[in-house]
Amino acid sequence: MNERIRAPKVRVVEEDGTHQLGILQTSQAIRIAKERGLDLVEVAPNADPPVCKIVNYGKYKYIQEKHKKEAHKHHKAGKVKEMKFRIGIDPHDYLIKIMHAEDFLAEGHKVRIQLQFRGRQMAHQELGHQLAQKIKADLLTMGSVDQEPKMAGRNINMQISPLPGQQRHRKFKTHLKGVTEHQDIKHQEGHDPREDKHDQEDHHDDEHHDDNHAAPAPQPAAPPPPAS
C-alpha cells in the first residue's frame, strides 16, 4: 500500500473498478490517491505491471474480510453428516438424534441416516423400514429424501437434503428439555459430537442380540463336605 509498493510503474484502477487511469509512475499514482484523501492499494502484485486501486483502505479491508467470511461460511456448509439409529432405539434417544438431525439440516448440511440391525433383528427387516419411514416423516418439515431407504449389508441407508431456508420448520426442538443447544457444544475443528462417526453404543445390546454370543461360563462346583 502507498509507499510500500516497490514496482516503479503500476496500472491504476479507479475505486469503482470500471475506469482506469492507465500505467503511471508509482509516485504519481500515490500522489493522485492522497490528493483524493484515499490510498493506493496493490490488488494484483503478480501482474506486469502490478495493478493498483485507488481506494479508502479501511473500507477496502472491511469488504475483503467480509467476502472472506462469506466464502468460509459457504465452504463449511453443504457437508454430509452421519446419524446412526439402532433398531428398537429408546424413544428418548430417538428424540435427541432427531433434534441433532434437525440441527444439521438447519445449518444446510445433508444428513446420511444409517439404521443398524443387530443379531436376530435381521429376521425382522420390516422394523427397520418402519423406522426409516418414521424418520422421513419426522424430518419432513426440514428436509427432503434424495436417497430412499436401501438395504446394505446389515444396515439400511438413506440420505436427506435440507429444504430451502424459508421452508424449514423444526418439529422437535421445543419438545426436548434439559438438552444443551448445539451452539453451546464445544468441539475440536473437524469433529462434531452430534455426528455418529463412531459407534459408541455399549456392548450390552450386542450380547443381547447377537446370535453368536458366547454362553455364560459355568459356575465352579461347590467343594465336597469334609470327611467325618
Rank of each mutant, 00 (worst) to 15 (best):
S144W: 09
P223W: 07
V145C: 03
P225M: 06
S161Y: 01
L140C: 01
R112W: 08
M122W: 03
K171R: 14
E189C: 08
D211W: 14
K197H: 14
K150N: 05
A221N: 07
H208V: 11
K110G: 01
H182I: 07
M122H: 02
F172G: 02
H175I: 05
G178W: 07
M151P: 08
H213S: 15
Q159S: 14
I98T: 04
H169A: 10
T141P: 00
Q219F: 09
D196E: 12
H187G: 12
A217E: 13
K136L: 06
L105R: 09
P220L: 04
A215R: 15
A137I: 00
Q114G: 00
A137S: 13
H92A: 12
I156N: 01
G153R: 03
D206C: 08
P216I: 07
I135N: 04
Q116A: 00
E181D: 15
A101W: 04
A137D: 07
K110D: 00
A106L: 02
N212Y: 14
D93Q: 14
L127F: 04
Q188A: 09
K197G: 10
F117W: 01
M151L: 15
I98C: 01
L139N: 00
Q200P: 07
G178H: 05
N212V: 11
F117P: 03
R112G: 05
Q116V: 06
H213Q: 12
L105S: 03
E207L: 12
H203D: 11
K136D: 04
Q166G: 08
E195N: 05
H213C: 08
D202T: 11
H129E: 08
Q183V: 10
H182C: 07
I185E: 07
H204M: 11
D211M: 10
Q114P: 03
E102I: 05
Q188L: 12
L127I: 00
T180D: 13
A217W: 08
H109E: 04
G128L: 01
H191F: 15
Q133L: 12
L139R: 01
F172Q: 10
H124E: 06
P164D: 09
A132H: 00
H209S: 09
K197W: 12
H169K: 15
A123K: 11
K110N: 02
I98H: 02
D210Y: 06
H191Y: 15
A106D: 02
S144M: 10
E148H: 08
